[in-house]
Design a protein around this nucleic acid. Structure first.
Lengths: 195, 195, 195, 195
DNA sequence: TATGAATGAGGGTTCATTCAT
DNA sequence: CATGAATGAACCCTCATTCAT
């Protein structure tokens, strides 16, 4: 019989690779990178263990793929803030977009915070993490500066800490944590009394 | 580990159990709990592997001991805030004490934040974590309330997030992070302009 | 593989089966049978992994084919010794032909010697190896007998050992080993002083 | 109870390590290095798989140990040739000692010849193999030179090839191969007619 | 109290082989 | 005739834990 076409193969590949990445992210975020076995990923993705190695050279490679993808997603967050708005509106939108991502991409972020405290795992990533963080801080500085805040650099650092702190507390008690209220408080802090 | 006098501490580290706890904490904070082997702890403590099992039933037991001790330490933090001061002074002292602990007990806190995102390890601890956090928040609420802050409950949540966020960022870049400046900014935020 | 005309050979290597055999031989001789994966053979032959199983039932089957082909080649060696020559000339020619084969079919011979010491791989072949070796020894005996050598049977054994020994040493240091000189020394040993 | 003494531990270690090396050599020589699994070695040595890694860092390390030991043994062969004898007697003794080693250390030599044709396994050893071979050739040259042989260098090469060739043929048919007769023939070749 | 040899389950990874197309 | 995705057994190695002394 005729072999599968290139497109058929491509589709199969994408399907399997997607299942692997999805399963890995889910398990990594739940149990941590080292506590998740390749076997567990395979079972979760309902494929064989061996197949994973058709798509990834190693377990670490899966993680790198996930994180790289996640970073792209983060970088695009700012694009959702229209430049036509007032500074306050922009700041509000930025925080809304950010907190939405925290809520919607909870698996990625949980995994990410977990990795942050396991430096050995992400040696290869640490320079990228640094770059990402400094670009995020630059962005925060810009917004704060537009709002007329003083000592922008350190205020951006504090704001960043607030966001990460809220995110972590949210993941500790996802069901009951008033994350939207927290967002409002943050906005209040920097934009004045009313929301 | 729980606060002890210098002599007690000295004695403890000389004894096997103390050496085990100290070594384990150091390694857990550096490499993570699962990435630290019993063998590594034994080597670091300069004792035999078997001896560890004379003092602890399992590797997890060591962790539980460390965390339990650490929690005692946290609970004592507030005792360092003299009740005779003004609200502002008390708040200032509280933050100073807290940030000092972040700097001085970095091994414990690093390990702690790492565990926070690895729920499976601390299933047995999660109720204690909850208790500790809610008691901390209560404390923060009290201080904020004395300062005349409104919506104390949520402001305490935000303040807690700030502190944890700063701590995490500090551990990401321990050498260059302006943690004392951050403390000042936080105080400023809640106590008005001047430090 | 068995001697073929240049055209036959050309055609064969263009066909899949030929490409497989050629690639497998190259890799087997370089890395050993077990260290060569089917995947590596397929990549080297620039075909798909699955196609190999259209032509061969198993990896071992490929090896058997190669060895069987090689044995045919060995058996034909004697045909290159004209019967019209004097015993000395015939002996000289035989050794020349033999050492030429060692030089020209180095891939096959390397692989062959490797297999000789891996009895489990060639269990299925061992009877054929025995047959081949005893026929070779018979041939050597005949030549030695014509040269007037005494105790022909054992001298043939020694001569055979010499040839295999030289071959092995040659493959150990293919670039610098004076294999032609060795051939002359062997001839000298059995044919008298001059070459 | 009191812990075991240092000597008791030492004895245990030596016993286990010896069992591992002995088993590994036996299996490596029978089935080849890559075809012998750590599990098989453990079962053969009647110990657990894990124990092997108390004594050796890796499977390759076991091989290195065996080969290093074997090389020491080879280097000592010449010490068994008394310097007080006549050249012929010395040559005779040298070959006797050599062929005895071939017979008595058959496992090591079988494994060794197998490795010789699997260069990738012994990359780390190849320089040592070279050194050993060139020292052996030097030794053969010396003996031949004392016997008055001409073109000593190449004759030593041929003699070395003979010995290795005989060894290999011996291992192909250990039960029926007339190895002692071969030794006599070799001696005859270089020492004249009578033994 | 203290040692470290010994165990064995489980982890990441490889690879001959199968199979739908 | 040809493809390469998919499988699963087997591999090397790690490590928490046990145990005799």
């Amino acid at each position: 019989m005729a072999p599968r076409t290139r497109e058929q193969f491509q589709k199969m590949r994408e399907k399997s690779q997607g299942k692997i990445l999805k399963s890995a992210l889910e398990l990594f975020s739940q149990k941590g990178f080292h506590q998740t076995s390749i076997d567990a990923i395979a079972k979760y993705a309902e494929i064989s263990k061996g197949l994973i190695y058709n798509y990834f050279d190693s377990k670490e490679e899966i993680l790198l793929d996930i994180v790289t993808d996640g970073f792209k997603l983060i970088k695009e967050l700012e694009n959702f803030v229209p430049t036509s708005l007032t500074p306050k509106q922009k700041f509000d939108t930025l925080l809304t977009v950010t907190f939405n991502s925290i809520k919607e991409n909870s698996e990625f972020w949980k995994m990410f915070f977990h990795l942050l405290s396991q430096p050995d795992v992400i040696t290869k990533l640490s320079s990228e993490v640094d770059k990402m963080y400094s670009s995020l801080f630059k962005m925060l500085e810009l917004h704060l500066s537009e709002l007329g805040v003083e000592d922008v650099e350190n205020q951006a650092k504090l704001l960043g800490a607030m966001i990460d702190g809220v995110a972590i507390h949210y993941y500790l008690n996802q069901e009951h944590y008033p994350i939207d209220l927290m967002k409002d408080k943050v906005i209040q802090l920097y934009c004045g009394e009313e929301k």
